[in-house]
């Protein structure tokens, strides 16, 4: 079985994330960029299946700036066999529609039995890409899974949507997306880190994928205005001397909050 795991490189959420007020794009130069945590969990789903089924090939794929090699290498060190890196200058500021077209075309080119994605990235947090990919690839999508079971022909799991919990399943080939209810990823071992240096990373460009970033017949979503909100300031801070509960009650009542 061939499993392709989609991983995104995102600005580290433990740091302050910045948008450029000129372009509306994430400032990727300032802070640290990391492999999105949900992408690591997605990779863990694939790797734990591969642990039990040695004939499984796990590929990590990312559309990201040229500098994102480190995040793909981390995926290889965790245990993926190879990586696909889609890099193209014209992808700067790609919207959801273009991102989906590019990834779908790369997935078609590489082939897959199962695509594993996160349900929601931590920067765009659109939560829509896996469904878009399934629509483009004409395969079923089993999304927002908090448990996953994979066998040779089928994938199934628990889907927690807004008003219900359901059990869903799909025949392979399929796209799935997983939630953070699934386990944390394993750490790369020393052996894994050494082995990663010899594993292949294939680079793909838009020309190679036959995708035109400026195709005229598809509408794009663009940012037309952006403003930074002033940061919140700290107010009163008291240390409890035995009466803090009473003081807080007064504060809430005076401000008509209780």
């Amino acid at each position: 079985m061939k499993i392709v795991v989609l991983v995104k490189e995102v600005p580290d959420t433990y740091a302050d994330r910045k948008l450029s007020l000129e372009t509306g794009l994430a400032k990727r130069d300032g802070g640290e960029n990391v492999l999105d945590e949900i992408g690591e969990r997605a990779l863990e789903v694939a790797l734990s299946y591969a642990d039990k089924h040695p004939d499984t090939e796990v590929v990590v794929m990312s559309m990201s700036p040229a500098t994102a090699i480190a995040t793909l290498t981390k995926g290889l060190a965790m245990g993926a066999a190879s990586a696909v890196h889609i890099v193209d200058e014209t992808l700067l500021g790609a919207d959801l529609g273009l991102t989906a077209e590019v990834l779908a075309s790369a997935l078609r080119k590489k082939g897959f039995d199962l695509v594993v994605a996160g349900n929601l990235s931590t920067d765009g947090s659109g939560g829509v890409l896996p469904a878009m990919l399934a629509e483009l690839l004409e395969v079923p999508a089993a999304t927002a899974l908090s448990t996953v079971e994979i066998d040779e022909h089928r994938v199934s799991g628990t889907r927690a949507s807004d008003s219900a919990t359901m059990t869903i399943s799909a025949l392979l080939p399929a796209v799935i997306s997983i939630t953070e209810a699934l386990p944390d990823a394993r750490f790369p071992s020393f052996k894994g880190i050494m082995a990663a240096k010899r594993k292949p990373i294939e680079m793909l460009s838009l020309a190679g994928l036959g995708v035109d970033a400026e195709r005229p017949d598809g509408a794009r979503s663009i940012i037309i205005d952006i403003t930074e909100k002033s940061a919140r300031k700290a107010g009163v801070k008291i240390t409890d001397q035995g009466d803090a509960g009473e003081k807080l009650a007064v504060f809430l009542l005076e401000n008509r909050l209780a």
Partner: peptide
């Protein structure tokens, strides 16, 4: 909520 963004389609 650090930024307000307005978006449109082409």
């Amino acid at each position: 909520g650090a930024y307000s963004v307005t978006s449109a389609v082409t």
